[in-house]
Design a protein around this nucleic acid. Structure first.
Lengths: 344, 344
DNA sequence: ATGAAAGCGCTAACAC
DNA sequence: GTGTTAGCGCTTTCAT
């Protein structure tokens, strides 16, 4: 196959200018060695020829890439979509490219992508683990080898690892507490696996809110699973089959809420008339368009921004002690102006 | 900064096995030169050492990358999010990595990303242009240099270029026609720039539907702009300031519909009671959750899949004549089961 | 079937 | 200031 834009290279420019490749290379990178005059000449010719350095050669040689590697479970998902956008744009503003990889909630793919990214010699990694990630050895190896790494939202159980998360427990608490304060006490929770931070913390928030108000928890209404629509669907069927139904459900994610909605609709149960649902996440940037769900709104833009900044700080050695940034959530009630979260 | 996983390289494996780098390299790539026995030995050691080839070196040397480059206007946007996911997964299944870049509707960023991707020596490109892309010289240069290229959804006005799109005109027609058939004739269109295929085609569909039913078009209710929320917001204000309001609006995208919703709400106008809205796009994979909008549903998964397949066909020289694939849309009416699109 | 040599395009170390 | 010399880790001739 014929191929390849007639790529001009350093050498071509060097020949034209009757200087060496090195001079051109340095001039282009604004190296202090080179005189202002040559720099100008070089830059002009480079512009004229539309010179773009060969990415592979540059990074192979420089042993760094100006790339941030991202491993995220999902992409067509509002929460992750806007996190990715935020990370991508923040990195871009700081002259970093972001290589986005998507694990599709598969631990195996996650590992594969990590290897690809490492082989690309990324300067740092931002990771949100899959719902089934249990083996942390890969992460530990990366940490050992001092490659800058920040976890975002979903964090594995590793000591002293930098992370950016939201106040999951507090958000869950305020969601459940809102139901209780409004006289609803028959509350279920379609939750996430407890081996992941967000599954555990949101469950804890649920339990805390119930206990604090001395509301008994019906174990039939509490299920644990993954973070997708199918999990919400299955979760609701499980609750339904237990013989009785709650009046409200706290769902761990927006997709889970959608799954619950679908199962309920199939069974002739009306949302929100028969059962109210509050979930983590959001379905649009703006909160003005009405929804059948209430939301524990997560500041996705801030999450992404902080993750990149934290990572860059680590890359530039600004921090050496691992930092854990926790951002606040807000409770959004459908049909109402947004309320501040009532955190425990 | 200390760095770098103690990367095992070909040489390390070669030494251990007392063979040359070349043998190891060939064995790993299953080259017929090498005996089955050596291949097994090599693979075993590579596995044991967790050998991952250096991406940069490999591609610099091989002059190809097994990478598909993607340039897309937005990411935190349901339509593009699911297109990206579909492209990414289809590519992955075919052993290609996808490098996703996001232009944020900026023609300048688009160009920059194209250069980066070219310098990565991507094997092919999938592009959806920004709302402001007017200069096509970069695309033409790429086409000239025979780098495989497929446009998806948003296509620039270039002759004979491979593309995957939806039936924009037909979808628009059925959306507007549905209003008319239900007795609503005061219909506006918050549309997109006519210099882009989708802006033009959807406008044409709107006009056709109106004319076919002999419904007069009120020019005050027809505005043209970008594809984002702010454009919908501005568009509605423009219509409002004209002095009269339509009973229905056909919006070019989901974000535009959201913008309209916001402006209307601000002005005390109720959606959908006062004005019904139908837009292209969707806000969730599943169509069961109710929405205040009707949708001209686009088959995002299919769009992505076809784009990758078409690109791979081009890369592998299966096709030489440019192909244009056009997929059908469906009209989804809120609160009702989905209907088939009524295409002209 | 295996390997030595050359080179992909760039940057870093050290001359001059 | 500028250029020379060596690689970065891999693949591709072309010998053997």
């Amino acid at each position: 196959m014929v191929r390849g834009i007639k790529a001009v290279k350093l050498e071509d420019l060097a020949k034209k200018l009757k200087v060496s490749k090195v001079t051109v290379s340095k001039a282009l990178r604004n190296h202090p060695d080179i005189s202002e005059e040559t720099k100008v000449r070089v830059r002009e010719l480079a512009d004229k020829y539309g010179y773009v350095p060969n990415f592979m050669a540059k990074n192979l040689s420089a042993r760094k890439s100006n790339i941030i590697g991202l491993v995220i479970p999902k992409i067509a998902h509002f929460f992750f979509g806007s996190i990715i956008e935020s990370i991508y744009n923040t990195a871009f503003e700081n002259n970093y490219e972001t290589v986005i990889t998507v694990s599709q909630e598969s631990a195996e793919r996650e590992k594969k992508h990590l290897q690809s990214l490492l082989s690309m010699r990324v300067d740092g990694l931002i990771i949100s683990i899959t719902e089934q990630t249990k083996d942390c050895s890969m992460f530990e190896k990366i940490i050992e080898s001092k490659i800058p790494l920040v976890f975002i939202d979903r964090v594995p159980p590793i000591k002293n690892v930098p992370s950016v998360t939201v106040n999951d427990k507090g958000g869950a608490f305020s969601a459940v507490n809102y139901f209780i304060k409004n006289g609803i006490t028959e509350i279920g929770h379609v939750g996430g696996y407890s081996h992941i931070n967000i599954g555990k913390a949101r469950m804890d928030g649920f339990i805390d809110a119930m206990q604090k108000s001395k509301v008994p928890i019906n174990p039939n209404w509490v299920v644990e699973g993954g973070f997708g629509e199918e999990d919400g669907y299955k979760g609701f069927k499980t609750i339904f089959n237990s013989g009785s139904l709650p009046k409200a459900i706290f769902a761990i994610t927006y997709p889970v809420a959608i799954g619950i909605y679908e199962a309920a609709t199939e069974l002739g149960i009306k949302i929100p008339q028969d059962i109210q649902i509050t979930c983590f996440g959001n379905n649009t940037f703006k909160h003005t368009v009405p929804s059948v769900f209430n939301f524990v709104d997560q500041p996705t833009l801030e999450l992404g921004k902080h993750a990149v900044q934290l990572l860059l700080d680590i890359i530039n050695n600004t921090y050496t002690v691992p930092r854990n940034i926790e951002l606040n959530t807000r409770l959004l009630i459908k049909g109402k102006e947004s309320l501040s979260g009532l955190v425990a």
